[in-house]
Design a binder for these strands. Structure first.
Length: 291
DNA sequence: GGTAGACCTGGACGC
DNA sequence: GCGTCCAGGTCTACC
């Protein structure tokens, strides 16, 4: 079955899909040009479903294999709206950057939305798996996590959904460390899954949290394995753009952009984007780097 | 508050 | 093929 979902304009599906590397992490699958992507998800009943998203006039077309009841269709629609930020209003950001040569392209290309997973649990796990490793390591760890512990798609069992916190919580550190290859991150992921599964940590509530960003950041930092960079990255995914996710790549880019290749620290990166105020994270994310 | 060292893996490199 | 070095954030212990 298929249906369409409207997006607040301007909207570009390729701009969201290509906003960062998430599309390369299981259980996403996607075209290089960003014109379509697939994702293996689960609906509230526990059923595993493959969805396929393509561009449609004014929004996106959602296709799933087989039929869903009304509740299942609503659930998928809700997930897709969050994943693509279909309801996000970035007009204030566009007005702020229109005159900046390093950012004006954002408006022309309808950039600004960032691809997300359906749950903040999945995005938190993936963010922890980006830390202290090469991107190829993140891809590999995520693939193994889904392959070993995700529930299979009934029509194609080799395709699996991202593991639920409940399922992850029942595994053990040694399996995650050696079989999945998470290394020292294994206890972090296990503790996170158990906290979410037990209800001690309600990550989904952070999507609509009334907390001020500094307080939300402190809450994220209390998760083992989430440090300054990871917290800033998660805030970006939550639509809070007042922190810049400073990693080694950011240091390198800012060094080359404004400091003639001389070594810089976190302070220089933050100072470079300070003028963009509550939009500084987005300004950094979509900056048109010269190098 | 700041800093050093450990954590773990894969890739690059030299032999 | 093997050994060594390095990159990549976060945590913990220590000052």
């Amino acid at each position: 079955m298929e249906w369409t979902l409207p997006a607040r304009q301007p909207f570009s599906l390729p701009a969201v899909v290509r906003s960062h590397g998430w599309i390369r992490l299981a259980p996403f699958s996607g075209e290089e040009d960003g014109t379509a992507f697939g994702y293996i998800t689960r609906v509230e009943t526990g059923e595993v479903v493959a969805m396929h998203i393509t561009a449609a006039p004014g929004g996106v077309r959602v296709t799933v294999d087989g039929d869903l009841d009304a509740a299942g269709q609503d659930d998928i629609s809700h997930q897709v709206r969050w994943m693509l930020g279909l309801d996000q209003d970035l007009s204030e950001f566009y007005d702020a950057v229109r005159a900046e040569p390093g950012l004006a392209h954002i408006v022309e290309r309808a950039q600004g939305r960032i691809l997300r997973s359906p749950t903040l649990f999945e995005d938190t796990v993936k963010t922890i798996l980006t830390t202290n490793t090469a991107w190829s390591g993140t891809i590999r760890m995520t693939e193994r996590l889904v392959d070993r512990l995700g529930d299979p798609l009934p029509s194609a069992p080799s395709h699996r959904a991202f593991p639920t916190p409940e399922h992850l919580a029942t595994t053990d550190e040694d399996t995650l460390r050696r079989d999945v290859g998470l290394g020292y991150r294994a206890p972090y992921i296990l503790a996170l899954a158990r906290a979410v599964a037990s209800g001690a940590l309600d990550l989904e509530a952070y999507k609509t949290s009334p907390l001020a960003t500094p307080d939300l950041r402190r809450a994220l930092l209390s998760i083992k394995g989430v440090g300054d960079y990871a917290a800033a990255n998660l805030l970006m995914l939550l639509g809070r753009y007042d922190w810049v996710p400073v990693d080694s790549w950011a240091l390198k880019m800012v060094s080359q952009e404004w400091h003639d290749g001389q070594p810089v620290g976190r302070a220089e990166v933050e100072a470079a984007f300070e003028p963009w105020g509550r939009w500084k994270g987005l300004a950094y994310w979509f900056w048109n780097w010269k190098s």
